[in-house]
């Protein structure tokens, strides 16, 4: 789990570094970033309500603030915002948001606003990368930082899968089917990307996804 959290954190650092160092967000999907902000805000509504650990609270805070930062850069920064590929980033996010919300309203652990929003965030996260993957496929010569970002972001849920297997074996009564199935789907969506990422990495070439 720690490795998963760190990979998640590194993915964000890599993305912020890329944007800040190159003053460019080309190849980065604003739609995916906005979906992630929605995921974090709806999942971490309990930030001020239930305290688990300083670590958890800090990470929640970092995830919300950093995705807000990335969106701010892409929308408002006078240099960076001009490098955003708006014509290419055309995924219709309503097709991800509404089904996730309806599914969360039907399949959840408890019928309450907080619980439905939390479940919604789990479902939405599992598909939030799709606009980014579509944009990558449309971009020729994806830069290394962007492909590293997607690789780290994809690895994070994969590492959580290992954590869940471990917890399931060692903790009595530890079951969370909604999170497990969503996490499996989330990782499966990256399989194709992982294949081409590792292939280009081995050949020491820039990543380009077949269209």
């Amino acid at each position: 789990r720690e490795a998963g959290d760190m990979t998640h954190l590194f993915s964000i650092i890599v993305l912020l570094l890329k944007i800040n160092a190159t003053k460019s967000c080309s190849g980065v999907s604003l739609k995916t970033q906005e979906l992630y902000l929605l995921v974090f805000v709806t999942r971490y509504l309990d930030l001020f309500q239930s305290y688990i650990s300083l670590y958890n609270s800090c990470m929640k805070f970092i995830f919300i603030v950093s995705s807000g930062c990335i969106i701010g850069y892409m929308r408002k920064h006078k240099v960076v915002s001009q490098t955003y590929d708006a014509e290419q980033d055309t995924f219709r996010v309503a097709f991800l948001v509404w089904p996730s919300f309806l599914l969360a309203a039907v399949i959840n652990q408890k019928l309450s606003v907080m619980e439905i929003l939390w479940t919604f965030s789990i479902y939405l996260e599992s598909v939030a990368i799709l606009p980014q993957l579509v944009l990558l496929q449309r971009t020729k010569n994806v830069d290394n930082l962007t492909s590293n970002y997607v690789f780290l972001l994809g690895s994070y849920r994969g590492l959580y899968l290992l954590n869940w297997i471990y917890r399931c074996l060692t903790e009595e009564g530890y079951r969370q089917w909604i999170v497990w199935i969503s996490g499996l789907l989330q990782t499966a969506i990256y399989c194709d990307f992982f294949y081409y990422y590792l292939k280009s990495w081995r050949k020491n070439e820039r990543l380009s996804l077949p269209s």
Partner: peptide, 10 residues
């Protein structure tokens, strides 16, 4: 009442 499950992961 109790939350549906302890949400101790991120």
């Amino acid at each position: 009442d109790e939350p549906a499950e302890a949400k101790d992961e991120l």
